[in-house]
Design a binder for these strands. Structure first.
Lengths: 356, 356
DNA sequence: GGCTAGATTGAGACCGGTCTCAATCCGATT
DNA sequence: AATCGGATTGAGACCGGTCTCAATCTAGCC
């Protein structure tokens, strides 16, 4: 079928060729700007192409060259501002290099991710950017590596996989945040993430997101250094399944209620802020709140939220640059690029309320 | 070239065929699940495919079938939560129907949009979703229609173009918002949008975004009905170029300062809120603020922002559904689907401050 | 004028699928 | 046993580009 839905036939090189009274090969040369063509013929062909409304078929070109000039990107959810920003970073670099983006949402589910990757591979993307849904189940990604497609991970790494990754210094960021709260006098600090995890978190548990894992590590390490017993008990996962509302309720209503919260991302911070407000607990007087990611609204609330800011756009851009290098044939050893995080202090941290 | 960057050769139907000792045609039938194949052969072929790690080449399939199972989407900026949400709506419907998405950002520039559309067409997307950068320059889109590619616009329409569109009832939404402020006693209400426009806005000017145009129309009409003279003077465009900060300053420092602001989208509302805060003008006591789009943070500020909420996700989803129908051959007359907006009242509106 | 190198051009294979059409196979029917 | 019809199978064209290789053309030079 050389017709599209509307029954119109697309103009091909052959059409242009016969209109310009030259061979298909010559027309292709004149249009594709490769090989050698006399000026007279080039003009004639280009005029004919113009007249017929010739539009090259990129797929046919890909078939013979093996290059699609398309990158695949698989993220959790484009509505999540983190991913939106990173995607924009990727898109900018890609567009500048003449590449397009095929986008898929995994909803952080390995099965959906696998499917998305499969389709992207089938569409012969030149390379793949993935924020892996699971840092432990390597299957989905191993397939890409095995297929020999360039692959760059971002935001998270995957253990035991020989690929490039671009991430943020989550552990040190978490340490900084935890220390900040510790220094304000807090001892009962809750770390909240939406990351799915079977059962309660225990020290040594392997988490399916390396970035959350690093944050938890930084958090519990710092707590332990400060002499807080059982730091792992302060880690609260599954916030999506359980609902942040109920989680906050549980944390605040327990025998030893938390006096501060570290939100693992801006979406969690938003929900915690909302939940606190709904329960009438004041921030920061009754509850201190800090978060990862400097979302656009964090400076707008009363009080503004103290956050650990990540260069999200740049993470995406750098990942794209790396991928483009690999596609270009760069065979240097794989590496993980780590971006520092930056503390933005606002007013959501105060000493814990005095015990009555 | 049948090799990818890494030098590995992809497995093809022919490879599978010879491994299973059948013809290419039969192998294709067994793998593609069309035509008739005996059970024994199907098994043999599928086993061989499995063993060799066969992965169909979607491009080759597209070449012969003419269907790419890919949709193109061109938006202003994926970082804008409006577009992120709409894109998610599109992606969900597309994925459910087995379609992928090629995403391009136009930054609201017709030239970038034209380029993006060109590439998408070259990649033979089955259809195109566009939030047109300009509602007046029809050239970019006319080309799509002429090429016979199904096209659906969303968020904005384009005058004189025979295509489907999915939008929100912006004019009535603007009227409602304006009335709300009028009823609270405001007479000097500023409408602020980032839309680029040469010179000051005058009644009858054609705006390049139909959705903003509708909002402005609803705004000025309602003002006029209320007997406010020169309603067009209260329309402030180019907020991106000039900066919302300076715009707010100009509005508040004028001889007859505005007592209320209508933000044309959540990004503007954010900037206005921030600017007001920076200048120390209290919302709503000194300045009332309402906005289009119920962004996730609008309920979190103090006070919460009263907004006109649009079913953004659904707008995207419906646009995708419509496009899929067209791709499926639906030849019914083109139509514009209009979704109602919904007022969400919070606390950012109060009577204007008494004149000293 | 004849010869040769370099520039142009054309023919046709190829990429990896789909699909049409004819050939072959099989069991059932008379 | 011969015939018939449906089920399988194989051969090869086709989609629209790129690219190799050989043929032709041109100009320069002796």
């Amino acid at each position: 079928m050389s017709e599209n839905g509307n029954g119109r036939r697309e103009v091909t090189v052959s059409d242009v060729a016969s209109a310009a009274r030259v061979s298909k090969a010559t027309a292709a040369r004149a249009l594709g700007d490769y090989g050698a063509v006399s000026d007279a013929v080039r003009d004639r062909v280009q005029r004919a192409a113009e007249e017929l409304g010739y539009r090259p078929n990129a797929l046919a070109r890909t078939m013979s060259t093996g290059r699609s000039h398309t990158l695949g990107i698989v993220i959790g959810d484009i509505e999540n501002p983190f991913f939106a920003q990173a995607t924009r970073g990727v898109a900018d670099v890609a567009a500048a290099a003449g590449y397009d983006l095929i986008l898929s949402n995994s909803d952080e589910e390995p099965a959906a991710e696998a499917k998305a990757i499969g389709v992207q591979l089938a569409k012969r993307v030149d390379g793949l950017l993935v924020a892996p849904a699971s840092s432990i189940a390597t299957g989905n990604l191993q397939a890409v590596v095995d297929a020999g497609r360039p692959l760059v991970l971002f935001d998270r790494t995957v253990h035991g996989l020989e690929v490039d990754a671009v991430i943020a210094a989550n552990r040190s960021g978490a340490k900084r945040l935890t220390r900040l709260l510790l220094e304000a006098g807090h001892r009962r600090i809750a770390f909240i993430s939406t990351l799915a995890h079977p059962g309660e978190y225990r020290l040594g548990d392997v988490l399916s997101s390396s970035s959350v894992a690093e944050r938890v590590q930084g958090f519990t390490d710092t707590l332990a250094e400060a002499g807080v017993p059982h730091p792992e008990r302060h880690v609260h996962l599954n916030a999506r399944r359980d609902g942040v509302e109920t989680l906050v309720a549980r944390i605040l209503d327990s025998a030893e209620p938390a006096t501060a919260v570290i939100a693992s991302d801006s979406l969690v911070a938003l929900a915690v802020f909302r939940a606190a407000r709904a329960r009438g607990v004041g921030i920061p007087d009754e509850l201190s709140l800090v978060s990862f990611d400097d979302a656009d609204w964090t400076g707008l609330t009363t009080p503004g939220i103290t956050v650990m800011s990540q260069p999200i756009h740049e993470i995406g851009a750098e990942a794209a640059r790396r991928l483009l290098q690999r596609i270009g044939g760069d065979g240097s050893p794989t590496a993980t690029t780590v971006f520092e995080q930056r503390l933005v202090e606002r007013r959501s941290v105060a000493p814990p309320p005095p015990v009555e």
